[in-house]
Amino acid sequence: MAFQILLNMLIAVIWMLLKNNFSPVEFMLGYIVGLVLLFFLRRFLKFDFYFRRIYALFKLIILFSYKLIMSNYDVIKIILSPKLNIEPGIIAVPTKLKTDWEVTLLANLISLTPGTLSMYFSEDGRTIFIHSIHVPDKEAAIKEIHDSFEKAILEVTN
């Protein structure tokens, strides 16, 4: 991946030299041209196109913003309801993620979406214990985390 970014920057510099114009705008243009070139040449040079990961990261950010707003609305509804009708609980969520920083990212994202709060890790660090403010159905809560955040993170890192 580092090699591809370097190649892309090299193409951008060559583009600037050819245009004889050394402004940041020209660099961006050259970078885009390099992206297109790499995209079409990915089959001959036998590598995985790195921009796919950036696209997946972008999708993760969009998903996160959406979740942040939706679940904030839910928590506000709970806080402002005249009678606090909640069933808090701690649920164990096993995760398929491998490296430590992926698990850290997942735990932080879980903490930042209201209604769930990661509060403990198991010994091997692959099970996150989550305090949830309203758990009518445990399996559904686990499945929701697996389907949304874990899948998006896997797309970024794989």
Binding site: N72, V75, I79, L84, H131
Partner: peptide, 17 residues
């Protein structure tokens, strides 16, 4: 309003943030 520490953490670290 929340009855315990964990509930208060939910309110504090998310809505306020």
């Amino acid at each position: 309003r929340f009855p315990d520490v964990y509930g208060r953490l939910h309110a504090a670290t998310k809505s306020a943030t």
